[in-house]
Design a protein around this nucleic acid. Structure first.
Length: 441
RNA sequence: GGAGAGGUCGCAUAGUGGUCUAGUGCGAAGGUCUUGAAAACCUUUGUGGGCGCAAGCUCACCGCGAGUUCGAAUCUCGCCCUCUCCGCCA
């Protein structure tokens, strides 16, 4: 969340930014609750101070009577204090992050700014051509035969089964078999090796976490309906656990409450986890195949940086995204997301990586690269001591890395051949042990 | 699932209702001494919030949350975590 003092001192800037981002929370409501809270703090502390003085020594019976009365008064005030604090904090936590000056204003697809467009044959598109009104899809490669989508292809090759998953689990699940499963492992190997070489720390993390963790990364309160709650029956008493939709919450929460040293920054790490998403609100949309499922696997890259270093980190993560796509020889673009479609409240600036699908003739989102500035760090209370001994909040940057299911879609559609086989991308062959996926019925 | 032990300032430990404004040791920072260092000695040493231009004043924090009390690290209840043992188990 934002620095409470910043909001008090710059209500106009914050209001403008909420509007820019299409938020609904009212700054005035917050300021009012905050003022009430601070007034109550003053009253409560005055009472506590006088009590502390009176109780320092054993009071006489007459004083006791007075003090008993005072206690009741204090209790009432303290109740009001708690309530006002919760109200103010709840409102504050719903205010979106301030936005990068680079973030374009807009509502959706037409308003994102293209940063790079690449295809395997012609490489980068001239930067000067990018911009509003340019249709980069026309630059992307097409097939000269009827293209099957990943669901048909997966069925023909007997490597993706969404019929049996419908029986076992319902809609929005999939079985990956044989070469599809091997492809996923190969993708993991390719990026994992690169990240280890780049000095990222490999992590295996809990995928069931407490509310506090999801609040910390600002997936709560606003994104709560996207998250699965675990029933309490087989869980420790009074524990409400949630299935994560991303490894970002448990990864960042690993450093929750800690003060790091500036010389330990940046910290780069990655995790490979299942991700669970309810997808309420998108019922009926993208229901086919692997595109939007309740459970998928992800290799995610995250980083903690010193202040003023997160933008650099974001570019670095983007360079890894692009390295991966170029290793795989997949056509893609990188876009800068616009103000009313830039992920969640924590976003300071967001890039999306989109792969090209020659069958659908459209781009598919393959990942988000988000600079959250100090927004998550403040909630998670992750700080560092700078070289002057000043305590500061770190900046957090997170990047999807590889969303396995969707990357499979991109590979299957781009690498299919007219005869129904799929060529294995060269970079994955060492891990696949073959160069072609053929039907194995 | 059952039984027991424990959780106090960076670390280690003391503290079982009011000089606890949490003591002591270690560590760390500064200083004295020294050619330099070590040792010794002296001083300092947490986090967060509110008020204030500031100096400063004040509140909260002893795993977490409730409660008892004029007053809680200390008493009561609930919970969490760690360790040991039994049971079950990949």
């Amino acid at each position: 969340m934002l620095d409470i003092k910043f909001v008090r001192e710059n209500p106009e800037l914050v209001r403008k930014n909420i509007n820019f981002r299409g938020g609904k929370v009212s700054v005035d409501d917050f300021l009012k609750a905050d003022k009430e809270h601070r007034d109550l703090i003053g009253q409560v502390e005055k009472l506590r101070a006088s009590r502390n003085i009176s109780s320092a020594k054993k009071p006489n019976p007459e004083e006791l009577k007075k003090l008993r009365q005072q206690r009741e008064e204090l209790k009432k005030l303290e109740n009001r204090l708690d309530k006002s604090e919760k109200t103010a904090l709840d409102l504050l936590s719903r205010i979106p992050n301030m936005s990068s000056p680079r973030m374009p204003e807009g509502n959706g697809d037409a308003d994102h700014v293209e940063l790079a467009v690449w295809n395997p044959d012609r490489k980068y598109l001239d930067q000067n051509k990018l911009g509003k009104g340019f249709n980069s899809a026309q630059y992307m490669p097409l097939k000269d035969f009827p293209v099957r989508d990943h669901v048909d292809l997966g069925k023909e090759l007997n490597i993706i089964d969404v019929e049996q998953s419908a029986v076992t689990s319902g809609s929005r699940f999939a079985y990956l078999k044989g070469d599809a499963a091997l492809l996923q492992f190969a993708l993991f190997e390719l990026l994992k090796n690169k990240l280890v070489q780049e000095g990222f720390e490999p992590m295996i993390v809990p995928v069931m976490v407490r509310e506090q963790v999801l609040f910390g990364t600002s997936h709560f309160p606003e994104g709560r309906d996207q998250v699965y709650e675990v029933g309490t029956q087989n869980v420790e008493e009074n524990q409400q656990l949630f299935l994560v939709g991303s490894s970002e919450p448990p990864l960042f929460a690993y450093y929750m409450g800690r003060t790091l040293s500036e010389k330990d920054l940046p910290k780069k790490f990655f995790a490979y986890t299942h991700c669970f998403r309810s997808e309420v609100g998108s019922w009926g949309k993208d229901v086919r195949g692997l595109k939007r499922v309740h459970q998928f696997d992800k290799l995610e890259m995250d980083a903690l940086t010193a202040q003023d270093k997160s933008e650099e980190m974001m570019e670095y993560l983007r360079s890894i995204n692009e390295w991966l796509m170029q290793q795989l020889n997949l056509p893609y673009r990188v876009i800068m997301k616009c103000s009313r479609d830039c992920g969640y409240n924590a976003t300071y600036l967001q890039y999306d990586l989109e792969g090209w699908l020659p069958g659908q003739k459209e781009f598919i989102e393959l990942g988000s690269n988000t600079d959250a500035w100090d927004y998550q760090a403040r909630r998670l209370n992750i700080r560092y001591l700078d070289s002057q001994g000043q305590r500061k909040y770190v900046h957090t940057v997170n990047d999807t890395g590889i969303p396995m299911g969707r990357m499979l879609i991109a590979i299957l559609e781009n690498y299919q051949n007219a005869d129904g086989t799929v060529t294995v991308p060269e970079a994955l062959r060492p891990y696949m042990g073959k160069d072609k996926i053929t039907s194995r019925k």
